[in-house]
Computed example of a mutant assay.
Amino acid sequence: MAKALIVYATRTGETEKIANLIAEGIRFSGHEAEVKKVTDVKKEDDLKGFDAVVLGSPTYHGEMVQGMKTLLFMAEKAELNGKVGGAFGAFGWSGEAPDRIFDTMKNIYQMNMVTAPLRLKAAGLGGGMKMAQDYGREIAEKFA
Rank of each mutant, 00 (worst) to 15 (best):
D45H: 03
V53H: 02
G126Y: 05
A90P: 09
S29I: 14
A2L: 08
A144M: 15
G25A: 14
V65Q: 08
K69S: 14
A90C: 12
A90E: 08
I22A: 02
N20C: 04
F88L: 09
F73D: 15
I18Y: 04
F73P: 07
I22R: 00
K37W: 07
K77W: 00
G13M: 04
G82E: 08
F88E: 06
V54P: 07
K69M: 12
I6V: 11
T59K: 05
A122Y: 02
K130Q: 12
G49V: 01
S94V: 15
G85E: 05
G13R: 02
Y60F: 12
Y109E: 10
G49R: 02
G89D: 03
G30H: 12
T39E: 14
N107M: 14
Q110V: 11
A132R: 02
L5S: 15
D103M: 13
V53N: 01
M74G: 15
A116R: 13
A90D: 06
M129E: 13
A52Q: 04
Y60R: 11
P58R: 00
V53C: 02
K83Y: 06
T104F: 14
G126E: 11
M113P: 11
T10N: 00
R100S: 10
V84Q: 15
S29K: 14
F88I: 07
V38C: 05
R100H: 11
Y109V: 08
P117V: 15
P117G: 15
P98I: 00
F88R: 05
G13E: 05
A2H: 11
K142T: 13
A123L: 01
G56Y: 00
G56Q: 01
E76Q: 11
V7S: 07
A122W: 00
Y8N: 07
V65G: 08
L118F: 08
G56F: 00
G124V: 03
D51N: 12
E34I: 06
T104M: 11
V65D: 06
D45M: 03
E32V: 04
L5T: 15
D103K: 14
T10M: 02
E32G: 11
A123W: 00
E96L: 11
S57E: 06
K77Y: 01
V35D: 08
T15D: 00
T15F: 00
A9Y: 09
V35M: 12
E63N: 03
G92S: 12
E76D: 09
E44I: 07
R27D: 12
A123C: 02
D46H: 02
